[in-house]
Computed example of a mutant assay.
Amino acid sequence: MTTACPVAEWARHEAVWIGFPSHPELWLDDLAPARAEVVAFASAVHAHGHGEKVLLVAADGEAASAATRLAPFAEIVVEPFGDIWLRDTGPILLPRKRAGGFAFNGWGGKYDLPGDDTIARRLAEGRGRHFAAHHWVLEGGAIDGDGTGTVITTEQCLLNPNRNPGMSKAEIESLLASDLGFTRVVWLGEGLLNDHTDGHVDNLARFVGEGRVAIPEAAENDPNWQVYQHARRDAEASGLEVVTIPSPGRVLRDDEIVPASYMNFYIGNAAVVVPVYGAANDDAAVAAVQALFPTRKAVGLRADSILTGGGSFHCISQQIPG
């Protein structure tokens, strides 16, 4: 039987898992503000009951108590994990109540945290999904599909020797087909500068319709201007329609360039939540996303503290299709 590919993110969701910051030793002074940003994101997705059910995933009792207090609208799920990046460590949901899980090696051996390699199975089986374990390394943020069988990814990540050493492009395409049902792989090149995920595509390019992909338009003094140019070239050469969203440009934290991106938005039932950073293009980016999703409300929310951990709203969430 041919595996049916994941539905597009804009399809109806039954619920969404969102990771809740749970480990003070990882977040330090950013723990409380990161929790506040996560709760604001979860609230926007819930949309006073007009969006989808929010499942806040807490790693322990203390975090669960804090989540209950801060987000009374959410259902709290207590499952041990290393950190909140459930897009990468959680299951990938498939049609017919199935879920796929993949080997996880801490983004190429960078962050080996207890629980991250088993959270996918525990979450999937907790929602009554038939779970299939696949024994090659793949993070959910490394791929983005349009629901028709087409998936985009970056060579920097999926061909990185710190993931599946020795595996060829053809072999990875074959596994994406057999395990997730993707029939066409569009390869982009590099991801954002200083992205410790080694170029996850959900910071660079996102499907916003069937065969239609959004890519940033470089801002002045943008450290990723060539990355965006090359991504657009590759996407258009593959026959995809490209639309652009402004880039936040050069965003610094402690004098270091960080991989801030408006592309890490989450497409919910009622809202599309866009991370913003106090950059000049924040409002323009939210307006551009609103134009792409006219039946949903585009909401811009600050994600500065979450970004200290390396990601944003899309990275901490994993939707459950309805």
Rank of each mutant, 00 (worst) to 15 (best):
P246N: 08
P246A: 13
P246Q: 11
S247K: 14
S247H: 05
P248I: 00
P248Y: 06
P248T: 07
P248C: 11
P248L: 06
P248D: 15
P248K: 11
G249A: 04
G249M: 07
G249Q: 08
G249N: 11
R250Q: 10
R250C: 15
R250A: 15
V251P: 01
V251E: 05
V251M: 06
V251H: 01
L252Y: 14
R253D: 11
D254R: 14
D254W: 13
D254A: 15
D254P: 04
D254L: 10
D255E: 13
D255P: 00
D255I: 14
D255L: 05
D255H: 03
D255K: 15
E256W: 02
E256N: 15
E256H: 09
E256V: 15
E256C: 10
E256D: 13
E256Y: 07
I257A: 02
I257H: 04
I257N: 07
I257W: 13
V258P: 11
V258G: 04
V258I: 10
V258W: 00
V258S: 00
V258L: 02
P259K: 06
P259W: 10
P259H: 00
P259E: 04
A260W: 03
A260E: 03
A260L: 01
S261M: 09
S261R: 00
S261K: 04
S261F: 10
S261L: 07
Y262R: 04
Y262Q: 12
Y262T: 00
M263H: 12
N264E: 02
N264K: 12
N264V: 11
N264P: 05
N264L: 09
N264Q: 01
F265A: 12
Y266C: 10
Y266I: 15
Y266F: 13
Y266W: 12
I267P: 09
I267W: 06
I267M: 10
I267F: 05
G268Y: 06
G268A: 11
G268L: 09
G268Q: 07
N269S: 05
N269V: 03
N269K: 08
A270Y: 13
A270D: 14
A270W: 08
A271Q: 14
V272N: 01
V272L: 13
V272T: 08
V272G: 03
V272F: 14
V272H: 10
V272P: 03
V273K: 00
V273H: 09
V273L: 08
V273S: 06
V274Y: 09
V274K: 02
V274N: 02
P275C: 04
P275V: 01
P275Q: 08
V276Y: 02
V276W: 05
Y277P: 08
Y277M: 04
Y277S: 03
G278A: 03
G278V: 03
G278E: 00
G278H: 04
G278Y: 11
G278M: 09
G278P: 15
G278Q: 04
G278I: 06
A279F: 07
A279C: 02
A279R: 12
A279S: 14
A280D: 09
A280C: 08
N281V: 05
N281I: 00
N281G: 01
N281L: 12
D282C: 12
D282I: 00
D282R: 01
D283G: 13
D283K: 13
D283P: 10
A284I: 02
A284D: 14
A284G: 13
A284Q: 07
A284H: 06
A284W: 00
A285V: 01
A285R: 00
